[in-house]
Design a protein around this nucleic acid. Structure first.
Lengths: 223, 223
DNA sequence: GCATTGTATCATGCATACAACCGAACGTGC
DNA sequence: GCACGTTCGGTTGTATGCATGATACAATGC
């Protein structure tokens, strides 16, 4: 079921755990992450911690200062705007290609994913986000473009950060309707409509989360 | 004015050198890269080599097999097609935004970059590629989107690989005309035209390089 | 009082040693 | 002769110790 069943190496485990702590806010924006602290706290050596931290930097979740260390990046409204605009671009293109390649079975499967979103309790934020991600990921997979999938995955960290920060549960009736619109466009093999619908959908997300970010600012950057 | 003037750390030096060897074909596709070999050959430890290799994997220039090592990725025509399609998407969007943000001075600067391409001897392949990259990079910079710039840079490695493998000198009159068309669209502040022109331009590249790849299958002969 | 310089401290950057794991070849039993 | 288990070699994964570079603070000179 879960394609990731190999948190085998310590570096991978540290990476996932650190990522979780950033996403959940256990590590507040602006705080310094010292390799030695993490290593001693979790009883591992600095080597895998170092590797994990580098990967987080690639994901845009932390930013490195040479010879100084890394700290959790601070989310600004401009960043969110920017990330979501590019995400709309990428996933819009993915939807366009998916409209060309999707089989009837694929369409049916996507429909079941949407049903699962509807069946998830609005209170279960994490499950809701996972179900929504599954729908978007499935469409990207249908695009049959390794490059598109790769870049989308690269944005995923920053997107997840935003969603976690804003408790983006995607429960609004508007976004649900948009999901069905996207699916209908795919089923009709209408590439233009699929791309337009996906872009519109993600831009709706964007306005929702940016608005929430303005009302719930960030934590204090500890020096 | 090179923004990168700090190949100070050993890891960075190893990264750049390894990258060069992959691009120039000193390391042929399919060849296994063993950390220890590189380290002893260049008189450094495995630690910075390991870091450099991981970064290359992120760039898509090498692919890793768990506990087995990494080897130089093999270029297929499908990969090239895919990478250039996404590149057209990203840089097309960049051109659109550039049309909104560019000042008169920016336009003039872009014009000088194009003049420099024309002034470069067709025989100097490396200089030609650098000059062309400068033009494209400048447009991406004008888009004022950190995310767009980041993803473009992430594709840069794969694109550079293709260009090096096909000696893509961009000397055809057709591509030069397209450059001027893009610039004209930017000068006219016509976002739609700019995006269209850039997409068309990169897709022209794509057909050129894919055709060359078919005639000259893999990289240059071993040194 | 302010600027400049020297120094202490600390985190990263690198090197080296050890351990775990995978693959392949070889040997043995049927 | 074939299949299976085992051993062996080699590579990556991890731990730890040392060197280096940067920053902050304090002392000193102007």
């Amino acid at each position: 079921m879960k394609p990731q069943a190999a948190p085998k190496t310590i570096a991978q485990q540290v990476y996932e755990r650190l990522r979780d702590e950033v996403l959940t806010g256990a590590l507040n924006p602006g705080v310094w992450i010292r390799e030695h602290d993490i290593a001693s706290a979790w009883s591992v050596s600095r080597t895998p911690v170092r590797e994990a931290v580098r990967r987080l930097a690639q994901d845009g979740l932390v930013e490195a200062s040479p010879n100084r260390g890394v700290r959790v990046t601070v989310l600004t409204a401009e960043d969110v705007d920017d990330v979501y605009e590019v995400r709309a671009l990428l996933e819009g293109a993915a939807a366009r290609r998916a409209a060309e390649y999707a089989t009837a079975a694929d369409i049916e499967y996507l429909g079941r994913l949407l049903d699962r979103i509807d069946a998830t309790a609005a209170s279960d934020v994490a499950a809701h986000i996972r179900a929504d991600e599954a729908f978007h990921d499935a469409i990207v997979a249908l695009a049959r473009s390794a490059t598109l999938a790769d870049l989308t995955r690269r944005l995923a960290g920053r997107v997840a950060r935003v969603r976690a920060a804003t408790a983006d549960t995607n429960t609004e009736a508007r976004t649900r309707r948009q999901h069905r619109t996207i699916l209908a466009a795919l089923a009709a093999r209408d590439a233009d409509a699929a791309e337009r619908a996906m872009r519109e959908h993600i831009r709706t997300y964007r306005s929702i989360v940016t608005e929430r970010l303005l009302h719930e600012p960030q934590g204090p950057p500890t020096r």
